[in-house]
Structure formats: structure tokens, C-alpha cells
């Protein structure tokens, strides 16, 4: 039998995930990420008293953040990504993301979120599916479609982007020069 996990006081949940989610949303939305971040935690708080247990809260908050971000991405025109918000350098907890951030800017929203969650945050496809409101298979398909799109673009000889990639990103995305 699975051991019951109590829902932690919201303050602890917030303390654990607020920074990481802000980083995620800023990477997806640039400066608009700040408003999306507040909306994410307000939505979480609105639903918090209906949680039945305290498991998978990280995946849960990424689900909410992804939905907020997708709404933003669909509503807005093309999002300009900023490496630098309010003059502060963006800290990168996931080194490979430094490149993904720019590389994924032109992907369709769903593929972009799938690639970012998979390669930037190491979320399993099951949780990415939940975040995208679809199945594990659909999440895997969106990520691989996004990666294929990136590969095509990056392996084109005219592209200057691939040259700047580290070995790690190259390996993750399996990009080779044509």
C-alpha cells in the first residue's frame, strides 16, 4: 500500500517550487513570464484545498505553469525571448538549456513546451503529457517532432546556430551536420 503523503502547508510548496517555475516561465515567455508566474501560483492556491495528497506536486505545478504559458503563447504573437530580465543575468540551473532557450523559440507552443520540459527540466513523458493535457504518447510525439524540426534547421549548412552548441546539447538532440 502506498503511504499517505500529507499536503504540505502552501508556504512550503511555494518555497520549494516558486524559483524553478519562474525560471521555466521566463524561458518560455521572456518578461511576460512574471505575470504568468503569479497566475500559476494563484491557480495552484485556488486548487490547493482540493488536493487529496502531497505527491507529484512538482509535476502538478509544472502542469499549471505550462497551461498558463500555452495560453499566453497562443494569445500573443511571436514571443521575444530575453536572456536578460531586468538587467539580471538569467541563472541556468540546467546548463543545456542556455541553448534550448534560443533554439526552441520558433517551435509551435506544444512542441516547444515538450522539448523544454524534457530536455530542460528532465520531466518524464508521463508528466509532460499531463502538463500538456494529453497522453504520454502525444507528449513523446510532440517532443520528437520538435527535436526533428530543430535538427532540420540546425543541420542546414546556412544555419549558424548549430556551431555554437555544446557537445551535450548536440548529444541530447542528436544533431549532426549534414
Amino acid at each position: 500500500m502506498m503511504e499517505a503523503v500529507a499536503v504540505p502547508p502552501f508556504e512550503r510548496f511555494y518555497g520549494q517550487h516558486a524559483s524553478e517555475v519562474l525560471g521555466y516561465l521566463r524561458r518560455l515567455l521572456g518578461q511576460r513570464g512574471d505575470a504568468a508566474w503569479q497566475e500559476t501560483f494563484l491557480r495552484a492556491l485556488r486548487a490547493y484545498d482540493r488536493l487529496e495528497h502531497g505527491r507529484h506536486l512538482r509535476a502538478w505545478v509544472f502542469t499549471i505553469a505550462t497551461r498558463v504559458a500555452m495560453d499566453e503563447l497562443r494569445a500573443g504573437s511571436k514571443v521575444r525571448l530575453e536572456a536578460d530580465v531586468d538587467g539580471e543575468p538569467v541563472e541556468l540551473e540546467q546548463p543545456a538549456f542556455a541553448e534550448l532557450e534560443h533554439l526552441t523559440a520558433d517551435l509551435p507552443p506544444k512542441e516547444r513546451a515538450a522539448v523544454v520540459l524534457r530536455y530542460g527540466y528532465d520531466l518524464p513523458y508521463e508528466e509532460i503529457g499531463a502538463a500538456l493535457g494529453s497522453s504520454e504518447e502525444a507528449a513523446r510525439a510532440a517532443a520528437s517532432s520538435g527535436v526533428r524540426r530543430l535538427r532540420r534547421r540546425l543541420s542546414a549548412p546556412s544555419s549558424g546556430g548549430a556551431g555554437a552548441m555544446t557537445q551535450r546539447t548536440r548529444r541530447n538532440l542528436n544533431v549532426h551536420h549534414a
Binding site: 516558486a18 524553478e20 519562474l22 525560471g23 521566463r26 508566474w37 503569479q38 494563484l42 485556488r46 540551473e93
Partner: peptide, 26 residues
């Protein structure tokens, strides 16, 4: 990425204004 005090305070104020808090502490 750290949350700025302004962002943090704005979120807490919004949560209170919406009546979403069971217990506040200090």
C-alpha cells in the same frame, strides 16, 4: 532564478485579496 521581493510581495497580496488563504503566519 530567485524571486524578487516585489514579485513575492505582489503574489502574497493577490492571494490575500482573493481570500485564498486559510491561515497567515509571521
Amino acid at each position: 532564478m530567485s524571486i524578487t521581493p516585489e514579485l513575492d510581495a505582489r503574489f502574497r497580496a493577490a492571494a490575500l485579496a482573493e481570500g485564498l488563504v486559510d491561515v497567515r503566519y509571521d
